[in-house]
Design a protein around this nucleic acid. Structure first.
Lengths: 341, 341
DNA sequence: CTGAAAGCGCTTACAG
DNA sequence: CTGAAAGCGCTTACAG
């Protein structure tokens, strides 16, 4: 018959220590998997067993105070409604969990107060490190220099010279995109990029242009637009006004593609027979649009995973470094792209 | 010339106390806005000023230990990629921030380990309360009884007899939907509901059926399907097979609507001329589909706000209660619904 | 109106 | 191989 658990309140380290017949010190070291510790196997077993029976879970705050380590990471994303980030987040959650960390997700964009988030999470000592996927130009956190105080990585964006960018090889991805279109005979192609100088957009754009140059093909027509349906819609209007000869469009995000599709339809250009549309990033929805979208599939979950790996390496004293993911990039062929006959 | 901040490490309560020339006790009480405290206004001002100058931010862990209060709430959502939850989350974040809480978002579904999340967040003492929007049947947390230990509310779902459900009035919403279709002359209508007995789906369905009964109209044909594009696609196939006379369909989620649209098109039924499609929940994307989707707009952000309000009331000692949001429900008319001529 | 002191639940040198 | 003790940064009765 097992001992009855403590009458009320949380079970503390002292409770498991007493159940196991040791002191807090030993119990603590055993439970935190201190490798340098030499204990009799039977003692270890008793402690582990006691913790199990009492369902012991250490108080995060107490541990944070004593060891100045929280076991938490924060993931800052620019837009909760964007599925791209949801998938990065999943990869991050899962890996963090496996490594014994919990990840706290926060939305961080122009409407949101980055300073406040930072205070609530970092200054308040709730997290050990930051995964920053919030693609803002001149991000206030970067400019303020406050990031220096805490380990961090940039995910899916690149901050020049930071030496801690974890990204998909967007140039490679865009090259794959270009060469796919080129291989189908398209020469008059356009690209719907992002607004201003956001790094993912910039990299996609550069890769696309370079691939065209490498093929000695005409320079693609690039249009800057919001990462939204409305952005894609307006971009297509502009493209067709200035370059009515365009036969293929490469859009930077799925919402842009949806807007582009609509615009093409309103303007009476049939997809793919008159204009082919290739979308960046694959999602289930792409298969259900009309026509079903041909897309570029990217290793987003892996991106989240890699970002956590890098951050945890830093927490363990390793140096920050850039990581670029180049595999798992492929075209998912559906009905929105066809060859030039 | 201002005093220089402490040389290194975090600034602590004792630092601001010393700068202000008082003890930690007083500083603590002033900074935590203890209403029962009588201090000379000048003392209060000195302390507040010192905290400001030193950029003092209390250590969350230390506070959690001493006061057993964390200032954090956790929002559990079933699917990060679903924009419905993103909008609830936004409402929640914003209100929580205004009330001095931080909200920690976590994805909680079948693939995820709810027990682990609970341990990491609740047992570890990282949060004061839970906002549970994860619409799972027989949720392990509910069954285990572990929720009894922590204040919580259910958001956008209803757990019978829990007395702490914060929801949009889905029956009302579905009644609005039904009456809209009915008013346009539709009598042979179908509803794409959710899988099994999930509470939001059940409530939508009931409201829709009741509205039909109240109008002495034929009973709508109800089909159960996954909350996904594939679910909507399959549902339409089934509907048209069994009830080829249907003139209008009411879909429970936007992804279902996208799948339904595709299915209708593949089966050669023109929308809206042969079949009208009304979608639950409005998002920017709806306007860019073809045809643009007529939708039911819901107060999702308000739902997040209300949920936080209720949870915080509980934290302040108030009793849990059910809250139903009935306003801000309206039809956004676009091109996927037309009248019976 | 303000201060001294205990205590929240841990970790971690330091002893033995 | 194990224990005693200090200390992390707060809050909160309790005194005065």
């Amino acid at each position: 018959m097992p001992d009855s658990p403590p009458a009320r309140g949380r079970v503390r380290l002292i409770d498991v220590a007493e159940l196991a017949g040791v002191t807090k010190s030993v119990a603590s070291r055993i439970l935190s998997r201190d490798e340098t510790l030499n204990v009799r196997p039977s003692t270890r077993a008793r402690v582990l067993d006691a913790a199990e029976r009492l369902q012991y879970s250490p108080h995060a705050g107490a541990r944070a105070l004593a060891a100045s380590t929280t076991g938490a990471l924060s993931l800052l994303i620019p837009d909760l409604t964007n599925p791209v980030y949801a998938r990065i987040a999943r990869g991050a959650y899962q890996r963090a969990h496996d490594l014994g960390y919990v990840v706290l997700l926060a939305e961080d964009n122009e409407e949101t107060d980055a300073r406040a988030d930072f205070t609530d999470l970092v200054d308040a000592g709730r997290v050990d490190g930051l995964l920053i996927a919030s693609a803002r130009q001149d991000h206030p956190l970067i400019e303020s220099g406050r990031l220096a105080a805490i380990p961090h990585v940039f995910v899916n964006r690149t901050v020049p010279d930071s030496g801690r960018n974890v990204t998909v090889d967007l140039e490679l991805a865009s090259r794959v995109a270009y060469e796919y279109l080129h291989g189908l005979g398209h020469r008059a192609v356009a690209h719907i990029s992002g607004p201003g100088g956001l790094s993912p957009a910039r990299d996609r754009e550069r890769g696309f242009l370079e691939a065209a140059a490498r093929s000695h093909a005409p320079i693609p027509h690039v249009v800057h637009a919001d990462f939204s349906e409305a952005g894609g819609y307006a971009a297509v209007e502009e493209i067709l006004r200035e370059r009515p000869d365009i036969t293929a469009i490469y859009a930077g995000t799925l919402p842009q593609s949806i807007g582009a599709l609509k615009s093409l339809q309103v303007l009476g250009r049939r997809v793919p027979h008159e204009v082919s549309l290739l979308s960046y990033d694959d999602l289930p929805m792409a298969a259900y649009l009309t026509p079903a979208l041909t897309t570029l599939e990217l290793p987003l979950q892996e991106l989240g995973t890699a970002a956590v790996d890098e951050l945890v390496q830093q927490l363990r004293g390793g140096p920050p470094r850039d990581v670029t993911l180049g595999s798992h990039i492929r075209i998912v062929e559906r009905d929105s792209v066809t060859s030039i006959s």
